[in-house]
Simulated scan of single mutants.
Amino acid sequence: MWYYTLNGQQAGPVSQAELAQMLNGSLPSDTLVWKEGMADWLPAQDVDAFRNIEATPPSQTNGSNPYAAPNSIVDENIKLSGTDEIPATPIPLDIGFCISKSWKTTIACFGAIFLTWFVYILITSIVGGVLSTIGTAIDGPVAVAPITEGMTQQAPFLPSHNQSINQQTGTGAIIAGILNNIFTMFLGLGLTLIGLNLLRGKDTNLGQLFGQSGTKLFRLIGASILYGLMVGLGLVFFIVPGIYLGMRFMFYQTVIVDKDLGVIDSLKYSSSLTRDNKWRLFFLFIINCFIVLAGALALIVGLIWALPVAWLTLLVAYLYLHDGERSLAA
């Protein structure tokens, strides 16, 4: 968040986009600005973030300017380490724009998206199959109970089925399942990065699918556990609290990828970003479910389009909540 001077007084905090808009209108280009991490106040025209803005010509400032670091009290949900992009005033989410933008991006970048998802599904399927095989080998073969006299026509398969379930939940299967989930989460980080780059108009490649660090993976595991506990407990208590918490903290993974924040800070960032938009996000989630359902009903082939659209829609929403349409590439 940024602070600036107005009529010899300290003002703010405001987001970078809001300050840029003011510099492009009412504020002179020599307005002194400051944000956390800067050693001193500087004229906006000397700060890289505002250097190319066509601001109002410099004006005379009133009084001396022995400014120290601001001591204003800022909402702790907004003032997080390493972040300065959450708008001071929440931006109402435009659900129609999110769906439209994701659809247009899917059409424009279909080749890259299809290849990315194909590789993602192929690799996760192969790794999942290998781990499952290893887990079965550790647990040993599934024992099939013999059919004994006195069983009904419906009963013969039940003993062997129950025995199969017991074997599939053995130590080997549990370890294999955990490792498979961790690997899928790791690729999910890369998938998120590719989606954000597509929406921002940046270059993407398959290498980005595997380019996220182990540190981010450990953060994601920790945040996922906390998120699951919060949402799970919320659903137990009359369902609505679970939906509320699910929408409020839903962007923790995207924040870990995009902002490189820790477990707690990623959840706090998501909470601040989604404030006053929780139910809009819930309706967007419901619409996404119908999109995927429609794709499945279209002879499954429709999922080739539906899954990328649903995936990108939530990433569009994440970017939109930062600075509206300006957060995304034209």
Rank of each mutant, 00 (worst) to 15 (best):
G129M: 11
R326Q: 14
G129T: 11
I182P: 04
T254F: 03
F238V: 00
A317E: 10
I300E: 00
G195P: 02
T105Y: 03
F110P: 08
Y4V: 10
T192Q: 08
Y318N: 05
A296I: 09
G242W: 00
R248G: 09
L6C: 06
A330R: 12
P70Q: 11
S26Y: 08
W305L: 07
L319H: 02
Q167S: 15
L189W: 05
P13M: 05
S271M: 04
G140F: 12
L299A: 12
P156V: 02
T124C: 13
L23W: 03
K259Y: 09
G295E: 00
S160V: 00
M247T: 00
L27I: 04
V74A: 06
A223L: 02
V316M: 08
N288A: 13
P146E: 08
R51S: 13
D276A: 15
E36D: 06
C109H: 15
D94Y: 11
S224H: 08
D94I: 08
N7M: 08
A173Y: 11
A296N: 06
L229F: 02
N24R: 13
S64F: 11
P13V: 09
S64Y: 10
C98R: 04
L312D: 02
M22L: 14
I53D: 11
M247N: 09
G242F: 00
V144N: 03
A68T: 11
G232K: 01
S160G: 06
F118R: 06
L321I: 07
L193F: 01
T5H: 06
I53V: 14
C289A: 13
L131C: 09
K216M: 13
Q163N: 02
K268P: 01
L233C: 04
A39Y: 06
E325T: 13
A310Q: 00
S72L: 12
I95R: 13
I243K: 01
P241N: 07
E36H: 10
K278E: 14
M250E: 07
Y4K: 00
F283Y: 12
L206W: 02
S72I: 13
L23G: 05
Y318P: 01
A317F: 02
Q208P: 03
T171A: 15
F110Q: 04
E85M: 09
G12F: 05
L42I: 05
R275Q: 14
T106C: 15
H161P: 04
Y120K: 10
V263Y: 03
L191C: 10
P66H: 09
I95L: 15
L267H: 05
L6W: 04
T274Y: 11
L131Y: 01
G140H: 12
I95A: 04
F290R: 07
D258L: 00
I165H: 00
Y67D: 05
Y4L: 01
G190E: 03
L312F: 11
T56C: 05
G12K: 02
F97C: 06
A176N: 07
V144E: 13
N71F: 05
T171N: 10
I126P: 08
V240N: 06
A296L: 15
T169Y: 15
A44R: 05
L122E: 06
I86A: 10
Q45M: 13
L115H: 01
